[in-house]
Design a protein around this nucleic acid. Sequence first.
DNA 1: ATGAAAGCGCTAACAG
DNA 2: CTGTTAGCGCTTTCAT
Lengths: 364, 364
Amino acid sequence: MTEAVSRPTLEAVAARAGVSRATVSRVVNGGDGVREPLAERVRRAVAELGYVPNQAARSLVTRRHDAVAVVIAEPETRVFADPFFALQLRGISKELTAHDNQLVLLLTEGRDDHARVARYLAGGHVDGALVFSLHLDDPLPGLIHDAGVPTVFGGRPGWGDDGDAAGHTRSTGEGPGVVYVDCDNRGGARAAVRHLVDLGRTRIAHLTGALDQTSAVDRLDGYRDVMAGVPGASDPRLVVESDFTPGGGERAMRALLDRCPDVDAVFAANDLTALGALRVLRASGRRVPEDVAVIGFDDMLPVAMEADPPLTTVRQDIEEMGRLMARLLLRGLADGRDRSAAMAQPPPAGGVILPTTLIRRASA
Amino acid sequence: MTEAVSRPTLEAVAARAGVSRATVSRVVNGGDGVREPLAERVRRAVAELGYVPNQAARSLVTRRHDAVAVVIAEPETRVFADPFFALQLRGISKELTAHDNQLVLLLTEGRDDHARVARYLAGGHVDGALVFSLHLDDPLPGLIHDAGVPTVFGGRPGWGDDGDAAGHTRSTGEGPGVVYVDCDNRGGARAAVRHLVDLGRTRIAHLTGALDQTSAVDRLDGYRDVMAGVPGASDPRLVVESDFTPGGGERAMRALLDRCPDVDAVFAANDLTALGALRVLRASGRRVPEDVAVIGFDDMLPVAMEADPPLTTVRQDIEEMGRLMARLLLRGLADGRDRSAAMAQPPPAGGVILPTTLIRRASA
DNA sequence: ATGAAAGCGCTAACAG
DNA sequence: CTGTTAGCGCTTTCAT
């Protein structure tokens, strides 16, 4: 399959340009401190020979890889049921590419893969990692954190310094805390519920997400924030636990109608759940939004747009979240290199929360 | 952030075990030709020191990377509108992981990125590439093919040796042809249309996909195959060009109802298109499947399952396609290495077509 | 400003 | 079977 002929080396370029390897190296890496005529000769030689630096040789001496691992744990199929993941990846990819970094994708299929991932990260193949931690009890984030690789998390990890209910042990005692990017789940939920209140609804229910994920917990908290502020609105029976799936949404909605036939609004933890609720509502003869208003979360297309009726929902800028994660990591890496200190500092600790916006369509 | 302390080297392990670097290297790489007691000493030293080979140093001499690039061109948002992409990636990842290869993800955002990708691949950073070529006129596959990197394509490239209508120039004259994995688009389409015929439908329409993609062309061909076999069934007005999107499906369906109000069955090029068609059909007062039967393609969840009515569709095993692509590439790479010949042979040329199955739900 | 030289950590002949 | 040796291609002091 075409030429496996060895590609030109620095040596070859140097020879052709009539200079030393060191000079070529300087030109190739930014070219500071090389006089223009010479630099030009080198550039021409590079072009003529089609020289491309050997990354392995370079890494060997610089100890850098210009590569970042993206770790996605997907024990559930949920990750693949919506474009969330793909969009995030796209944002990450854009940012990484803009800074000449490669993206090494690590997909894990359950516990067995944890060791593999941990080993890979600890092995120093990449300069940093972007990790999506979906579940509160996932050991992976801890492992990775312990591996000593600069890391930014996607979504608030369950064991972070933040609104952690209690009991979850931090993976280690050291370090100023984790860095993560998340959307404003709680604020978005508040906006949704407030909108329902403004609509004059009085029996507002919530179908939760899988409560082992911080996003579900935060959305539930947002719902409660608003309900607590409306006299007489709170009613535990209005909260039904679900799992972010359409099937779960159906079951939860049916349970809800059993308990509270007078419900006149539903805030679903995500669009898929809302979809299931919509179907049950329709089957029960109720009209949306006339009898029951429905709001979802994610603005997951085409689901939200193609739902019947089109779904009012809380949008988060998923691609931007990915982009931001990469930017944070890269910045942290650069900082670490600039500091003369021996070891790389992590990026400024703490979480970055991206805003959400309520998208009004027909369902509420 | 924890120890940036330099990790132990082969040298260190050798010293600790009281052997030479070469011996350690042998043990680490399979350990053939090292007597057991010694090997055991080495393994213990490795464990005690937590030694992990430096991949950069290794690649420098072996000229291998145990890494494969996955190139996904996504000029359109379509890739992100469905889990297709994610599933394929999952299949690829599984297979790669099983063979200790890393997955380097290259997402392209249009022409500007082509040069970057081509440079990266030509730069010899990876051992091979898996490329998704979505469009007939996409120059990327050609560039990559020319770059001389062993490659397997996902989906039949438009310029392959196969059912190419005409006119498309091969990127180069050399080589025995490209290797690709695709699903049986044509056969799947035939099965769908045949099912419609068996249902007794006589006015069977087809809403095509974007005809600059081979998958759309092949599905159209499949439709025609069957229609040509049914006396009096063919009617050019029954074929409406669309673009794989719900919006396109709506427009195409409206156009179709204008031309042929008597249509009693629709085979849509994919599930999203079917979704749009469904909506227009419902708005026009027609019942599905009683008045008009509808079949989609992809079995894209949750769209197909959550559609109203649930969609009868043609399923393809997407994850298996990804897996197969990786397997083919890896096999080709291994073959190339085994052969004493100087250059790697590509995997056996030609395409591998995976079967499709008709999934019967309520819409037809 | 440029060149010479010393490795980075590893594998792969080649000896013994 | 094990050790010695010579680089892989590049960056980076250190001289000049």
